[in-house]
Amino acid sequence: MADFQYFQPSRVAEMVGEENVGEMLRGYLTSLDGAFSELSAYWQEGDVQHVRMTSHRMKSSARFIGADELAEVLQKIETDSLNEADNICAQTTQLSVVEQWCHELTREINHYLDSES
């Protein structure tokens, strides 16, 4: 498998088998889109508890596909959201970083899927 910058198809293959990687990644893309929409909505509402829960769920999924750098960004959001004295939702820098990572990850997964067809 070729090297990828944003995820590791080999990690997915280790978990689900080579023949199931495409199906798993297509499902991941669907869930990523929905999860980012939720995260963004909670962020805009200032709902720190749901930001923490959603970033935790997204982090776990990102680690599964080998998107470790995205997982680290989400881990920081999860950790920062525990500090109730400083509302993470008051600034949008971290959300913008997640949005950019999700965009690049989606692009790279789609490229991988297109090349596997």
Rank of each mutant, 00 (worst) to 15 (best):
V21S: 00
S60I: 03
P9H: 03
F7W: 00
Q8S: 14
R11N: 05
Q91C: 11
L95R: 03
V16Q: 02
V16E: 05
W101P: 00
T79W: 05
Q94N: 08
M24Q: 13
H103G: 09
H50Y: 07
L29R: 09
F7K: 01
P9L: 01
M1K: 09
G46T: 05
L105V: 04
A71T: 05
E45H: 08
Q5P: 04
D80N: 13
A2L: 14
A41M: 14
E72G: 12
M53T: 13
M15R: 15
G17I: 04
M58L: 15
A41S: 14
L32D: 02
T54P: 02
R11M: 06
M1E: 07
V98Y: 04
Q44A: 15
N110Q: 15
A13M: 08
D3G: 05
E23Y: 05
L74S: 00
R57V: 09
H50L: 10
A71D: 00
V98N: 03
M58S: 06
E99A: 11
R107I: 12
E14D: 09
T30C: 14
E38V: 03
M1Q: 04
D33V: 11
L25C: 03
I88P: 00
D33W: 10
R57Y: 09
S117A: 11
V98T: 03
M15H: 10
Q49E: 09
Q100G: 10
E69W: 04
L39S: 01
S40L: 15
A2S: 09
V12I: 12
L39K: 00
T92A: 08
L82V: 11
R26G: 06
L39G: 01
C89T: 12
I77Q: 04
I77V: 05
D80C: 13
T54F: 04
G46R: 09
R57Q: 08
L113G: 06
E84I: 14
N20T: 06
F36I: 13
R63S: 12
E84L: 14
L29V: 12
E19P: 01
E18I: 04
V48Y: 02
S10W: 02
R52I: 10
L95N: 02
L29A: 09
Q91L: 14
L82H: 06
A90S: 11
T106V: 04
R11K: 13
E72W: 03
R63W: 07
V73S: 00
R63K: 10
E23H: 14
Q91D: 15
M53H: 11
E14Y: 11
Q5H: 13
T92S: 15
S60T: 08
I109S: 00
L105H: 03
E14S: 15
E104N: 05
V21E: 02
V98G: 02
Q49W: 05
L113V: 06
Q5C: 09
F4S: 01
L39W: 05
S96G: 12
E38A: 15
M53G: 08
